[in-house]
């Protein structure tokens, strides 16, 4: 790492970077320390706008060029969440800021989307296992999670349009407490499977 990178990295104030809003706070922090110019910020905003237009096109099957504001906010949240997902994997705000500046926004969105899609597919496989090895003497909250909350969440989730959606559930008896993003849902399902381990089922997954 060069001296400039060390200097710049230490200039990033960790308390100003929020994991839940990483792209936004990273860009703001990079602007604050002089890593980004106004043109860089404008390019990021333009890239996001174009990516949002692409997502709107997917969502409306290109049948509509406009959407309601609440839907637009949801799609923008999804675009940012997918970008956040990818940039957080770099584990380095300086590298993340460099990539945010140099890589097209749509590419960042696609990379994050690929990661979240993988989490989603894994969550579905894990949930199938959880259902088939479920406890027969589970608590009310446990049964509600298995029968209603998890199916609804996994059924309505789409990493293209609502990757940022969270699962709101808790099973106090098992120390499970939400809300969970999709990657956290995977971890939670693995924990449930570990608790249910040893239960016999005649169905093979």
């Amino acid at each position: 790492m060069t001296e400039l990178q060390l200097t710049n990295q230490s200039a990033f104030q960790p308390e100003n970077l929020r994991r839940s809003d990483y792209t936004n706070t990273l860009a703001a922090e990079a602007a604050r320390i002089g890593l980004y110019t106004e043109d860089d910020i404008l390019a990021i905003q333009t890239g996001l706008m174009n990516t949002l237009a692409v997502v709107i096109g997917y969502a409306t099957k290109n049948e509509s060029t406009s959407v309601r504001l609440d839907k637009a906010n949801e799609y923008l949240g999804c675009v940012l969440y997918n970008c956040d997902t990818y940039l957080l994997t770099l584990n380095d705000p300086f590298a993340a800021a460099e990539q945010l500046k140099s890589i097209p926004m749509e590419e960042l969105y696609n990379r994050g989307f690929a990661i979240n899609r993988e989490h989603y597919q894994k969550a579905k496989r894990l949930f199938a296992n959880v259902r088939y090895t479920r406890l027969h003497d589970g608590s009310k909250t446990y049964n509600r999670a298995i029968d209603i909350l998890l199916p609804h969440y996994l059924g309505s989730y789409d990493p293209r349009f609502n990757a940022q959606d969270q699962l709101y559930m808790s099973i106090p008896s098992m120390g499970v407490k939400g809300p969970f993003h999709m990657d956290e849902t995977v971890a939670m399902l693995e924990k449930l499977l570990a608790v249910q381990k040893g239960r016999q089922s005649d169905l093979q997954i």
């Binding site: 100003n16 809003d21 792209t23 936004n24 706070t25 860009a27 703001a28 602007a31 910020i41 990021i44 905003q45 996001l48 706008m49 949002l52 504001l69 637009a72 906010n73 923008l76 940012l80």
Partner: peptide, 14 residues
């Protein structure tokens, strides 16, 4: 911290 990226940035493009 003010958000740099919001829908308001996109809203009014002539």
């Amino acid at each position: 911290m003010n958000a740099l990226i919001t829908l308001e940035n996109f809203a009014l493009q002539p």
